Amino acid sequence: MAIKNQLKDKLHPKNIHRNGYNFKALIRVYPALKEFVFINKFGTETIDFSNAKAVKSMNTALLFTYYKLSFWDFPESNLCPAIPGRADYIHHLNDLLKFSGLTNKVKILDIGTGASCIYPILGNAIYDWKFVGTDTDENSLKSAGKILKKNKLTQFIELKQQLDSENIFKGIINKSDKYTATMCNPPFYKSEEEAMLANERKRKGLKIIDKASLRNFSGKQQELWYKGGEKAFVHTYLYESSMFKKQCFWFTSLISKKENVKGMYDSLEKLGATEIKTIPMQQGNKITRIVAWTFLNEKEQKEWN
């Protein structure tokens, strides 16, 4: 019950996971989850969230039950995303688009889509959005492509490789392209060493002994760290967004570090942003936010569609 209340208080009102997890329903759809479910000391069904296989099994069951998937798999070295939090970004982005009258023919550019292709999958399943997902890692895109092909989603979700890891939009957005919005979950850490230290703290906090159980805390370089960390990545993201001002209505990004937000506002004002918004998000004890900005003036916004 405590888990349900915590989710209900902090997830988006439209997030189907805010009322907790119906494990019986999940197991009916994905029987492999059954071996990981147990009753905790509060009398509630749950899983061990420090167990890598349990976490992946849980996420697979959620996707099969609620998001129209029949296949979802990727290499052990890639990040395993938490579905409720990823769905929250989608719901908050939808609120922003509705506020701007952007409900028809929505096309989203997902920066760093990863091997799991999670944001395009959720956005298409929940709101029928079309996507272009980008990544610098060829193997991640191959994995994402396999997921899309097996679930017959290739007509709704396109994948593009960013060939230059120093760029974000350059080499991806062509002159004729037009996107309703972009979305991004930036690399958080400054280096592999910093990421590994954070993983070690998580292991100690969850009292994990088996290093193999760190699957849900793992991830490749482009998923977890970037030279200069989130601040440096976002600086490039902001600057390059100003090079494609008229080709996207809303640029958005998750921002984990609150102290980076003020600098973003200062930079965006200098770059000519006409509107900037901060949308708070929270899942459990994790607090984050979406920062959204546009370069379109009032007339251009009205004429967008």
Rank of each mutant, 00 (worst) to 15 (best):
K207F: 10
K14N: 14
S213I: 02
G85F: 10
F188H: 03
A52V: 00
Y127V: 05
I157M: 10
S176R: 06
G85V: 13
L163T: 05
K53Q: 09
N51M: 04
T294Q: 04
A125W: 05
N167T: 14
K160C: 00
N174T: 13
G145P: 04
L296G: 12
E240I: 11
L109F: 02
S256I: 05
I276Q: 12
I16N: 10
E230C: 08
I290D: 00
Y67T: 15
T44S: 05
V261E: 06
I255P: 02
K130M: 06
K277S: 09
G219Q: 13
T288C: 03
A195W: 14
A273R: 08
E35P: 06
F251G: 07
V29F: 00
I90N: 02
T288N: 05
K175S: 12
S253Q: 10
N260A: 13
K53T: 11
L79W: 11
F188T: 03
A2G: 04
K170H: 10
W225A: 10
I118D: 08
K150Q: 09
G123R: 05
S140R: 00
E193S: 11
T182Q: 03
N78P: 06
T288A: 06
V55P: 02
V55T: 04
K170Q: 13
R215W: 12
V106L: 11
Q221N: 14
E300Q: 11
F233V: 03
C80N: 08
E45I: 09
W304R: 01
K24V: 10
D137C: 01
E300K: 04
N285S: 02
A212K: 09
I3N: 02
N40L: 04
E192G: 10
T154D: 07
K258G: 07
A212S: 10
K107D: 04
S253N: 14
I209E: 14
I173R: 00
T136C: 08
P81D: 06
A25R: 05
K299E: 08
L148K: 00
S140W: 00
V291S: 05
S50N: 08
E269Q: 07
F244M: 12
F23D: 02
Y67C: 15
A87L: 03
L197G: 15
E230H: 08
W304I: 03
G43M: 06
K202R: 13
L96S: 15
G85Q: 12
D73K: 03
K258T: 09
I83V: 09
E158F: 02
K202L: 11
Q222F: 09
P84C: 05
E192Q: 08
K202S: 14
K202Q: 12
G171N: 10
F38L: 12
M58E: 04
L206P: 07
H92F: 14
S70G: 15
D177P: 09
L63N: 01
L271H: 12
Y237L: 07
S218F: 13
F49H: 13
E76D: 15
Y127Q: 04
S253Y: 06
A2I: 08
V29S: 01
D88M: 08
L97G: 13
A54K: 00
Y179D: 07
I126K: 15
N285F: 05
G114Q: 00
M58S: 09
K277L: 12
